[in-house]
Write a protein that binds this DNA or RNA. Structure first.
Lengths: 178, 178
DNA sequence: TTTTCCATGTAACTCGTTACATGATTTC
DNA sequence: GAAATCATGTAACGAGTTACATGGAAAA
């Protein structure tokens, strides 16, 4: 929740923009970092406006639909820094939905489990490729760090999954010796 | 949503239990893997009962409050395997709240950013220690894999964070040469 | 005797998503 | 003439959390 606010305020720290522009920017550049959807962005911007953290002024440019341009206020900047500090100092609480399935792998025969996990590994490696082949968009150090962070976890996941698959294969071979 | 169901059905695959027991088990053993809360468990169990995946029969043991004992039905077992297969084959979509702050590190002076990130790293290393010093509870291969998975990501995060801190320190030193 | 344990829940709320609505305008 | 783009939203729903309620029994 505060993360959505932090993201929007951070974007507005660079320069004032209207909602459509912000959403487009997120869609094109930050999809790996956030999954915030358009209606959430619009709603959050309105909320931030109500709370005095952003200012709105409408603009009618040419024949295009009326835009609402959001600018960050001084209070908004203070709030941004507050959110930023707590965010940077706090570790993510990680929990992975796939761990729940993993706990029960032993309920499936090894070969079926291996097939499923291999599919998952392929999906993962595809995502890693996509990530690595993505163009460098030179928005400063921080954005690079964030992207790198994401990639680090994808790779760690891949390595771990591979080792799980290997160990299950060994189990399969051992069980076939009987 | 289906993960909560998978978890509960998986627990009931071992043996029939009442809600309190299930919640206690989660609380004591699976807190690293799931964050499901009590009311969610009770509600999900009721839902699974409505859908015919589990059967309920009440039991009055001694002077203790009446228990509702949940048993998995044949349909429930089929549903369990269905959920298990899709869960195992699907990679987690990872997104980390801390990446949003990270994107904007450059808005803070290096030394302040370093202080905040160091705090976060300490928090992380504490969590890793806790994880490693936790006793082995011999519930089969799968549970061990899941725990290992969690630890792998904690460590990857720690390593990455350390490298970020190091690079920021270099930046700080370089900027002080002026 | 007060607190903790057992055992179950409910009600209100929060955060977010999905699907849809609007209407003009430019591109195919 | 149809489809995509620009620009904004709303309404309904979903999943889960928090805080609270209940009430007897055992432990401190």
């Amino acid at each position: 929740m505060e993360e959505r606010a932090l993201l929007l305020l951070g974007i507005l720290m660079v320069h004032s923009q209207h909602g459509y522009q912000i959403n487009e920017f997120i869609e094109m550049n930050l999809r790996r970092v956030t999954d915030m959807k358009k209606p959430t962005a619009y709603a959050t911007l309105d909320r931030l406006a109500d709370e005095g953290y952003v200012e709105v002024h409408t603009e009618k440019a040419g024949k295009r639909p009326t835009r609402k341009i959001y600018s960050i206020t001084p209070q908004g900047q203070r709030y941004f820094f507050e959110l930023l500090r707590t965010n940077l100092a706090k570790a993510d609480k990680m929990n992975f939905g796939s761990d729940i399935g993993m706990m029960f792998v032993d309920h499936l025969p090894y070969d079926e489990a291996l097939t499923l996990l291999d599919k998952r590994r392929q999906e993962l490696s595809l995502e890693i490729e996509l990530h690595e082949s993505a163009p460098e968009h030179g928005f400063g150090l921080g954005v690079d760090f964030a992207m790198e962070h994401h990639l680090v976890h994808l790779k760690a996941d891949f390595e771990w999954l591979s080792s799980v698959i290997e160990r299950l294969r060994n189990q399969l071979e051992n069980s076939q010796l009987n």
